[in-house]
């Protein structure tokens, strides 16, 4: 699971969206709305990543009563992995911001 060692952007967005229970379409719309359409997750990409996250037990099926819109939620393991990646991304941002403001 290469894309899960260091979370790729779509994996990061999907895991973040699933911190609260959601179905796939709600994940797509949340990401698209939040980024003003700058970041789009295609349906095949979303389905592939959901299956991967389930296999790695980073998310779990929360509610399957509507078979067309299954609801997933982040597991404890998923939460830990996401928090670690937030830290990684924070370091990137801090470095970039510091370097940009330095010395003028």
């Amino acid at each position: 699971m290469k894309s899960l060692e260091q979370l790729t952007d779509p994996v990061f967005y999907i895991m973040a969206a699933l911190a609260k229970p959601k179905h796939g379409y709600a994940v797509m719309s949340l990401v698209e709305e939040t980024t003003n359409g700058a970041f789009v997750i295609g349906p095949a990409t979303l389905y592939t990543i959901i299956k991967k996250l389930l296999a790695e037990e980073l998310i779990v099926l929360h509610d399957a009563s509507d078979s067309r819109r299954k609801v997933y939620v982040l597991t404890e393991k998923g939460r830990t992995v996401l928090e670690k990646d937030i830290e990684r991304r924070k370091i990137m941002l801090t470095l970039a911001e510091k370097e940009l403001t330095k010395g003028d």
Partner: peptide, 14 residues
Amino acid sequence: IKPIYTDVESNIDK
């Protein structure tokens, strides 16, 4: 409409 695959990793999986 945007493509069904929007990232490289899933496309390689395909």
